[in-house]
Design a protein around this nucleic acid. Structure first.
Lengths: 224, 224
DNA sequence: CTAGCAGATGTACGCTGTACGCACTGCTTG
DNA sequence: CAAGCAGTGCGTACAGCGTACATCTGCTAG
């Protein structure tokens, strides 16, 4: 095989920052952030590990770029819609992106080098709120509440990727196993009659809280 | 030096799980989760790295135990107080614990092996809500909203440990540096006139959102 | 044809978690 | 007092990590 990068078809495809970042995102979607190693990303691209360093400064830089990809997937609230549906749509889009890219939860707001999509996103959201009559302090309140809730909800549900109810049930059993029955009666009742109830849907839970927050902000906006 | 562990005074102090976990918590408080290596914890205890494995199954098990220490620092809502002040106190205690132990944010709710303090805590909180008239579905709503907000707020503020305003200002400059001025006017206005304003206090921001959520829950409880 | 150069590579280093087996301790028995 | 035993700490070793550095390769400009 030639020294130059080649894909599986043997056609020469030069490695670029974009290709590297995309491969990294795809890998992290499957293997998580801990499974994201420079060597694995390189292997996915049919390239030597050190080749990546021509296009990214280091692993942190790669992750910064990956986060900006996630921000880029969230539509900007640009239209003339009212602030409330705009914020609701943004919250749902952001949540969907976080579900697609679990590894990004916890990193979205803690990067020291925000990318352009990141800044553009926040600029657009703030602009939407400002033009809807939120003063600066109220923007801060709204943003804290909304993003706190969105990221927090994603975070607390991150490690619950149970597609089937049986899987969920097994996990619950596993967690309670080391403890005597009835030691935690309230928790047991809650888990048994609610979380494990057929048809329980996290997405509905998310939207309930979102409405409470949006209504609370609307009320606060009126009394300002 | 004898084969048995000895502290700096030469008095023999047997290594225990508790001592190991405590040292790990202290180390993580300073060095973060990434800086928490088995070798460093061992060094802090004046012990060989592998000695830890007599008391801890592996690094994950150690972290599980550390998380339970954090849960143990949060007072349980036991008294006869009304649910609202009880939930407010719990939220503030939890937030304080997360500020003390930044490394724990993102791990508190995602452990597959919850410890006894963890389960006791959730049991007590659920019990408080139930005895205040929340039905099971309403408990789920309240818990999702409150914990989502608490953890999310902590998360979005995690990497903002700026004690001084000058430090905050420098960080903001640094983040905007690579971009042309006025490319993000709304964001710039927000950062300059609010975040960098003297006297801006994150704690106040947290409590504002907390009141909105508690009021929203109270209203929903009434109309149920 | 040759020079230069950008990009991919191979090697190597210090770090990590931790499997495995040994060595030492102090207690429990006879 | 001796013997054995269980518990605890240690030393060695290995695979895998991020990445510094020097080298090699193949394209492009003259």
């Amino acid at each position: 095989m030639s020294a130059a990068a080649a894909n599986t078809e043997g056609v020469r495809v030069p490695l670029t920052r974009e290709r590297a970042v995309h491969a990294a995102v795809q890998h992290a979607d499957v293997a998580g952030l801990e499974g994201l190693t420079m060597r694995h990303v390189a292997k996915a691209l049919n390239v030597a590990p050190m080749a990546l360093y021509r296009h990214v400064a280091n692993r942190e830089d790669l992750i910064d770029a990956m986060i900006d990809v996630v921000f880029g997937e969230i539509p900007l609230p640009l239209g003339g819609a009212a602030w409330k549906p705009a914020m609701r749509d943004r919250a749902l889009s952001l949540r969907e992106a976080l579900v697609r890219h679990r590894w990004a939860i916890g990193l979205m707001e803690s990067r020291m080098r925000p990318g352009p999509a990141n800044l553009r996103h926040h600029d657009a959201v703030i602009g939407k709120l400002r033009s809807a009559g939120f003063d600066i302090a109220m923007v801060a309140h709204a943003y804290s509440l909304l993003d706190g809730y969105i990221y927090g909800f994603a975070l607390t549900r991150m490690n619950m990727p149970f597609d089937s109810e049986a899987e969920m049930d097994a996990m619950a059993q596993h967690m309670f196993e080391p403890f005597p029955a009835n030691e935690y009666p309230n928790l047991a009742e809650f888990v048994n009659t609610h979380v494990l109830k057929p048809g329980y849907d996290y997405a509905e839970e998310f939207e309930y809280g979102l409405e409470v927050i949006l209504d609370g902000l609307e009320a606060a906006l009126g009394t300002d």
